[in-house]
Design a protein around this nucleic acid. Structure first.
Lengths: 239, 239
DNA sequence: TTCTCCAAAGTTGTATGAAAGATTTTGCCA
DNA sequence: TGGCAAAATCTTTCATACAACTTTGGAGAA
């Protein structure tokens, strides 16, 4: 009879990792120390470290890239919304509708953010932008950074509903392909990503300068571009 | 460049395990084959099998007893939490936040409606407006008419998401009082309701004339007024 | 100088052998 | 038959090695 499950090393390391992420203030997209380093830090073998990381990956808190490193990813945010109008889109037309709905929220969020943003809000946006630049080559990590940027704007509205909406939407509407996949030419892709960075910058500047209308216009332009690209992409790839 | 994340062996084994559990009809509490067996079955090393099991443990689908074996555990029950951001508002500040969030959606809905409305849409709006006028004396009926008007606008966007949102929001955010209750003077009240009719009329005209920006401005003004009145009312009645 | 290409170093993924801790089964003896 | 100890089984952990991939920095070319 196993009254008390002896705490396995793997669990100890797992807890140590989440504590380490919290204490060191590691943001989504940041890199963890290499596994060898973690081995000596926790005084365990690599097997244990790897299993702990595998656990955290399964929980969606880490992401690993072969040959590169292990990265912190966006916190999982339990799904489970039941609202009909937040259902995951069913077909391409539905995705476009959803994107349009999203626009309505985020455009206004940008405007409110311009009126209410604090220095801390601006800092988070800047962090997200530089993170985006740092991970241009990796679609999933750039997607994380993109979400961080939009979430920082939602935060700046100082209205919880916007933040909650952006979080929940992220679970359902992530046209991951749209952030870099589907380009046959590498030059086209980097140009496209540069474009997005420019759009983010324009939104950021408007919010920083407290220009609400310009912030709305910039956000509208940004999201309209994404929606247009998705439509073109889906037209080209429909079967 | 990371075109397609090459599927790691661990993920393959993980999928294989869940498929195996399903196909063999393993119930919670049943024991899995020993890891050595799984290794040769999937033709991989123990490392891989162990990481796959670690993942499934993290997801709560397996649990392992040292020295005994690995067992299927109760399937994790889906957290049935509804969409946080659509929760019914808790306090006055929350109501104001929700109203602001609603504004973001309906402002854009008005703009889209102006671009896309059909004659039928306009007819529905007119019906709602005359219904509103006909029932000025009855708060609940006037509220119904008000909802019909906003829903007709959402319909005119030709985007299902807007219609679904307006419907669902109506369930949660009905400042019934704001539509007439709380007036000590009958004259103030009728004046207030005339005001609302005028705002509706302005929105309707803009949509009818396909003036998207004017429709947005009119809707913003309309909802901002409602929100301001609610705030004043709540300040006057706070305990 | 600046750009391109390539090799070396760094990092994760996979394989293998071994040993220790814990549980279950076996088999012997009374 | 009943009890008990050894054997077998299984998970956990450690250590090492190699493969696959990415990043980095420097040598050489334009």
């Amino acid at each position: 009879m196993a009254e008390i499950e002896a705490l396995r090393l793997t669990d100890r390391v797992k807890n140590g990792l989440v504590r380490m992420i919290a204490e060191d203030g590691l943001q989504p997209g940041d890199k963890l120390p290499p596994s060898d380093r973690l081995c000596e830090q926790f005084s365990v073998s690599r097997t244990v470290v790897r299993e702990a990381i595998a656990s955290l990956k399964a929980e969606g808190r880490l992401r690993s890239l072969r040959g590169s490193g292990v990265y912190v990813s966006e916190p999982p945010k339990l799904t489970g919304g039941s609202s009909m109008f937040m259902e995951a889109p069913q077909d391409i037309g539905d995705v476009l509708d959803f994107m349009e709905f999203r626009m309505s929220v985020e455009i206004e969020a940008a405007g409110l953010a311009a009126e209410r943003r604090t220095e801390t809000n601006l800092l988070r946006m800047e962090q997200a932008m530089s993170q985006f630049a740092r991970h241009l080559e990796d679609n999933t990590l750039a997607t994380d950074a993109d979400r961080s940027f939009h979430r920082a704007i939602a935060d700046a509205t100082n209205n919880t509903r916007f933040r909650l909406f952006v979080d929940e939407m992220g679970e359902r509407l992530i046209p991951r392909r749209a952030l870099g996949a589907g380009f046959s030419d590498e030059k086209d892709k980097s140009e496209f990503l540069d474009n997005i960075q420019g759009e983010h910058r324009r939104i950021f500047d408007a919010i920083s300068d407290r220009q609400a209308d310009e912030a709305r216009a910039a956000m509208r332009h940004h999201l309209e571009g994404g929606r247009r690209r998705y439509r073109e992409w889906s037209l080209a790839h429909e079967r």
